[in-house]
Structure formats: C-alpha cells, structure tokens
Nucleic acid binder design. Structure first.
Length: 599
RNA sequence: GCCGGGAUAGCUCAACGGUAGAGCAAUCGCUUCGUAAGCGAUAGGUUGUGGGUUCGAAUCCCAUUCCCGGCUCCA
C-alpha cells in the first residue's frame, strides 16, 4: 500500500455494516453503563439490519431511557475514539472481569478458554469488551442509527437461565439507508394484517372464544373460499386426490404414530369419550396413512397423492401467538405422497412446480429455498435407513439444480424423520416468510408398517412425502394481506366493483348494472345512500375496492358509465359491456392488469 | 411459559383521586349532489374481569384474562 490515504470504505458492504453494527453495540454498552452504573454486560452482536446488547441489572429500561442512551451514544461517537484490540492471557482477562464483577463475561471467558481460542479485548474510549473483533476504525463512523426497542431475552437463549434485558437498534452506512429502513418498518406497521384484517372486516380473534382461534368474516371467508377452490382445482389437475378426515381420533392412533411422545408438548390434552381418550389432531398425516392402509396397495396405485385442507389444532404457548401467523387452530393445505424409490425425483419436482404455480398465482415473485439435511454423525437419532436419507437428500438437491433454483443447504437441520425443502416467500417490502414445505418421512411408514405389493409380488415399504404449499391458509392469508396492503388482485378482492350513484334517479340503472356484473360472475356492491359522491368514493377507497362505477344523470342519459380505479385514475364514457369484459379477463389473468390507457 | 409494556363507546383518543368526554362510525330526519368527509338530531360505557385501599377509584394496590415488543418454539 502506498502512502496515500486509505480509500473510503464501501458503506453498503456487508462487512462494513457488520463492523458498524458491532461497533454500535459496544458504544451502546458504554452509554448504558455510564447512565446506569452497575449494569452487567453480556453479549452484543451485529444482526440483520442492526445490533443488540443484552444487559442484566435492576433498572428496567423504558422508552425514555432509550432516548437518553441514544443521546449519549451520539456524544461518544462524535468523540472519534479509535477501536483497538489486544490479545490477553486468560489470567489477565479473568482479573479484569473479576475486578468489575462482570460474571457473564467470566462465563464467556471460560468458554473461550475451553475451546482454546485466542482471548482478545477491544477498547474504545473508556469501554472495553471481551470480543473477537470486527469494528470500525473509530466511533466516528457511527452516525446513522436508532434504538428501537427493549425486550426480554434469556441468557444464552436458554429459558432455564435468567432473563436479561435486550436493547435493539438499527444502524446503517448512510442517512438514506437508515431512513429507508425506518420507512420499511413504518410501512410494515401500516400493513400489519392484525390491524388491516379487522379494519377491512376480513377476520377477527375473539377473547371470549380464546386466543389463537380465527373467525373468518364474510369477506375474508369469501377470499378463503376462492383460495381453496383454486388450490383444489390445481391439485386435481396435478393428480392429487382430495380426501376428508376427522378432527379428532382415539389416542391409540397417536400412540401408534408416535406423536404422543415426540409431539406431546404441542398437543391439546386428550378428551375422554366413553372411557376412551381422544385427541384433537395436531397433524393430518396419520389420517392419510389410515386411508392408504385401508386396503392392500399395489405399485400400480403409486404414486398416491392424498390431499386435504385439513384443520389441525396445536397447543402453542401463549406468548408465541401472533395474529394469523401463529395460531392454535389452522388449516393446512396438506398432502401426503406415497411412492416408490423410483418416483421420488419426479414427485419432488411435481411439488416444486406446484409451489411455484402457487407463488405465481398470488403474486409472489421472490422466494428462498432451503434444503435441510441430516447430520450423518448422529444417524442413531434419525428414523429410517442411511441409504434412503442419502437418496432423498440427493433427489431434493438434484431437482433444485435441474430447475436452476438457488437454495441454501442447511446441514444437520433436518427433522428426525426426514430431510426437507422449506420455501420462504419474500413479500412486497422485502420480508421473508416461512411457508411451503416438502418433507420426506422415514418414520411414519415404519410406525404404521406401510406396504405395497411390488411388480415382482414382494411386499415393499413405500416412501412418504409430506407437502404443504400455502403452509397454513391462515398464515398465507395473513401474508397476502400484508403483501398487498389490503389492495388485493381483482380475482381475490371480496368486493370487486362498487357502484356509486349521484342521485336516486340512478337507482334503477345501478341495479341493472349490478345484475349484469353478477351475471358475469363478478362481485359488485351498490352504494345507493343519500351521500354525496365524494363521500361514497372516500368510503370505497378506504375499503380498498379495486373499481368504482359512478353513475350520474349524464352517464345514464348517454348510456355509458364512469369508472374510477382505486389508484385515482378516472375514465368517462365507457360501455358497460367493455368494462365487464375487461374485468372478467383481469380475473382470469389473475395478476395482469388490463390496459386502461391514460386518464 | 418467561421479561417488559398495555387495555376507557364499533374505531381513534381525552379525562390521571372528586358527576366519564370528543371526532369518526351507527340509527333517524333533512339534503339529490359529478370523483377522498353535506347538515341536524338520537343512541351508545358497571373504564377487560375479580378483589382491595379510600368519604370517594378509569385514576392507587393485588390477582386474573386478553393484546403488544421480544426470548424459546414453529405452518
């Protein structure tokens, strides 16, 4: 390197952002210890979009405290203190942290020693942390940040450990980046399905009925029906067979499946019925297996794809419930594919194609695939044969390769019963949501001793694939609400057209138009109230209705209609038949909007 | 489940130890109007629930339910 000044860092690179955020965490810890002496520090890493630091102390941080801490952080940052690192011996480090009574740091220190790692301390200003490094050159670079929230977090993420207080912050290389992120956060808040859902009269959760249980109102119910019908039609055309199974079953079934032992924590307690115990179903799998098992199967019947919109009930701890995204009763678009080893690649490919069709239909352009495989070193912890695992994992990866779909390989993350592909959707404002899942199951076929008769007359064990594409209809719907911020594509919109009249004179023509729209299988609603047109438009706009037809004396006299789109564009003098034809086409195209020309 | 915060009319909020109030929505009436709020009237509340302190509690205390931010877990 020459004597010239160091080139400016790329403030948008991940490396820079990690260093910045990590540096923020240190500065925050200094500020907290200055303002609240005696607070013990634990760990404070950089995370996606920001940083946090976990503290232990008697004072409970409030919103006002965050403002104070943030102010002090800015002062420290402006002091332009360099970060410097120094390797220390275990004894030196131990003496330092003992002297300060930092018991968490001492615990971390012992861990570092056990793993035989280097012990380094990083210092800026008056603050020193036990840290492996990765900071900015100086605190001067810390400018575009904001403290966001305080939350509880267990020491080392273990609920048996003490609860610490975590302060979250976000930090960026430029003001624009920070503003952009804060805007995304407020946009996310504005789209929150828990707010929009009830506001648009789509669904509710009722305290009297219990938490985590969803009431689908008429509009949400209609949308759900459309989603379900679409999925059923797709499934049938892709060779699935639709089944229906009970919501409850004798406990013996759950003992056989093994759920009573490995899934007990998530199951509601059993219900006694005539001296036998019954169990509300947390999963559909055993039921589909019973259908498979109801007679002797031939290889000629495979692959057998049994699908159901199966409602399951899972006991979720009260603190984890979240709107439609985490509930106690939900409906999975569940399917179980029973197949031979020869089938697996084409079946996995079929599932992937179906999943991509779902995303395309509902307007999700981005997604991330993750393949979770086993840890062969712990093969005893898994069900099934090593050969089957290897074959299934290879098939999952091969299919994704062939379809040129990028994926992340997560080794050792498979469930004990089989490897899987999870798909995360990326929504309109860049958030990822876990949704579709395609999982092999080497456990249940064994538990239920599933068989088919092979072409050579021998009895063989089929392979089984679980697959859910929406994942849960509730969750998918919640994500849809947020993705579109309530402005649903026409084919899903519960009210597609609102017919607004200027005066009572237009009531009859408005009703005639309503009938015509209904005859074309569209969903119109009349607004004949004695309100001014501006008020009717405002109401329709707030309901996020895609199209408004405005009927006034001039329109009726000319035999035309005026159309207003929810984006504000207006078109006068349209023929109703043309309007209807465009809407019908938009519904069948699903996501392609018609060309309305310029307003 | 755990830590912290919260709950007042359908919604958004006010009253912060001394008679619970506003706007919007709802209902009724008037208005018949050209692209985001016409006017008036009426009705609506054991302040989430249960206890306690007090002459007096929406307000202070305890318990509980539900919600929110996270942790752990997950479709």
């Amino acid at each position: 390197m020459t004597a010239t000044a160091k080139s400016a860092p790329d403030v948008s690179s991940q490396e820079y952002l990690d260093a910045l955020r990590h540096s923020c965490a240190h500065v925050m810890a200094q500020a907290v210890q200055e303002i609240f002496p005696g607070t013990k520090i634990t760990i404070g890493p950089a995370i996606e979009n920001g940083f946090y630091y976990d503290f232990d102390g008697p004072h409970h941080f409030t919103e006002e405290d965050l403002a104070k801490i943030e102010k002090r952080m800015r002062q420290i940052a402006e002091g332009n203190h360099p970060f410097s690192g120094k390797e220390q011996s275990y004894e030196e480090s131990k003496a330092y942290w003992s002297g300060r009574g930092e018991k968490y740091k001492l615990e971390l220190l012992d861990g570092i020693k056990e793993r035989g790692e280097k012990i380094t301390h990083y210092t800026h200003s008056t603050f020193t942390d036990l840290c492996r490094g990765g900071h900015l050159d100086s605190t001067k670079g810390i400018r575009h940040f904001k403290l966001l929230s305080v939350a509880g977090a267990y020491w080392r993420g273990d609920e048996k450990n003490p609860m610490l207080q975590r302060i979250y912050g976000t930090a960026w290389g430029t003001k624009d980046a920070l503003d952009g992120h804060l805007k995304m956060l407020s946009e996310a808040k504005a789209r929150d399905h828990r707010k929009l859902g009830p506001a648009l009269d789509l669904f509710s959760i009722q305290e009297l009925a219990g938490p985590g249980l969803i009431f689908w109102h008429p509009k949400g119910g209609l949308m759900r029906m459309i989603m379900e019908n679409w999925l059923r039609a797709e499934a049938l055309s892709r060779g699935y067979q639709m089944v229906y199974t009970p919501h409850i079953a004798n406990i013996d079934l759950w003992n056989t499946s093994g759920h009573r032992s490995f899934y007990k924590d998530n199951m509601f307690t059993e219900i006694e019925v005539e001296k036998a115990d019954y169990q509300l179903k947390p999963m559909n799998c055993p039921f589909h297996i019973l259908i498979y098992q109801s007679k002797l199967r031939s290889y000629r019947e495979l692959p057998m794809r049994l699908a159901e919109l199966g409602t399951v009930y899972r006991y979720e701890r009260s603190g984890v419930l979240h709107g439609l995204l985490r509930v106690r009763g939900f409906t999975q678009d569940d399917a179980h594919i029973f197949c031979t080893r020869e089938n697996i690649e084409s079946e996995v490919a079929g599932c992937i194609d179906f999943a991509l069709a779902v995303f395309a239909a509902f307007g999700f352009e981005k997604y991330q695939m993750e393949v979770s495989t086993w840890d062969p070193a712990k093969s005893a912890d898994y069900s099934g044969e090593a050969a089957d695992w290897e074959m299934a994992q290879a098939a999952l990866e091969r299919v994704l390769h062939e379809k040129k779909l990028p994926y992340k390989l997560i080794k050792g993350e498979a469930a004990f019963y089989g490897p899987k592909i999870d798909v995360k959707l990326i929504d309109a404002i860049g958030r990822a949501w876990q949704l579709s899942t395609i999982q092999f199951d080497f456990n249940l076929p064994q538990k239920f001793s599933l068989e088919y008769i092979s072409h050579d007359g021998s009895r063989q064990r089929p392979l089984m694939v679980h697959r859910a594409l929406y994942g849960s209809i509730e969750r998918f719907f919640g994500i849809l609400v947020e993705h579109y911020a309530g402005h649903f594509p026409l084919w899903l919109a519960p009210v597609q057209v609102k017919i607004l009249t200027l005066t009572d004179e237009q009531n009859a023509p408005a009703q005639a138009l309503e009938a015509k729209l209904k005859a074309a299988s569209l969903r119109p609603v009349l607004d004949l109230r004695g309100e001014k047109i501006g008020a009717k438009i405002r109401d329709a706009q707030l309901e996020k209705v895609p199209y408004m037809v405005i009927l006034g004396p001039k329109d009726v006299a000319a035999g035309v209609i005026s159309v207003r789109l929810s984006d504000g564009r207006q078109f006068q003098g349209l023929r109703d038949d043309d309007f209807i034809a465009k809407l019908v086409k938009e519904c069948s195209d699903k996501l392609t909007k018609p060309d309305w020309g310029n307003a």
